[in-house]
């Protein structure tokens, strides 16, 4: 549930930032250590999602992890967000 929420948020945010939303892909994989989201974007959009000194990427990770937080049990699932070139 919380993992889905994280993926939804990740997809939404990245699509809002890039120049080519149709080229955005978010692949979720899950293992014992947590969740991993692999984000792919269109040509030339990588700079936008990473930002100067990685600021935008950090903001995306923060927001995505917040979305993955389970308020009922107050647990944080480990979520990795990777921007794949």
């Amino acid at each position: 549930m919380s993992a889905d929420s994280a993926k939804t948020v990740c997809e939404y945010v990245v699509k809002q930032i890039v120049g080519d939303p149709d080229a955005v892909g978010v692949a979720m994989s899950e293992d014992a250590s947590g969740i991993r989201l692999d984000v792919t974007v269109g040509d030339g959009d990588m700079g936008r999602v990473i930002g100067k000194r990685g600021r935008v990427a950090m903001a995306i990770r923060t927001v995505v992890r917040a979305a993955g937080h389970d308020t009922d049990t107050d647990t944080d699932t480990k979520i990795e967000v990777e921007f794949v070139d």
């Binding site: 945010v13 809002q16 936008r48 930002g51 935008v56 950090m58 903001a59 995306i60 923060t62 917040a66």
Partner: peptide, 8 residues
């Protein structure tokens, strides 16, 4: 972080 994203 949300404010930062809004800016972007």
């Amino acid at each position: 972080a949300i404010d930062e994203l809004v800016r972007t």
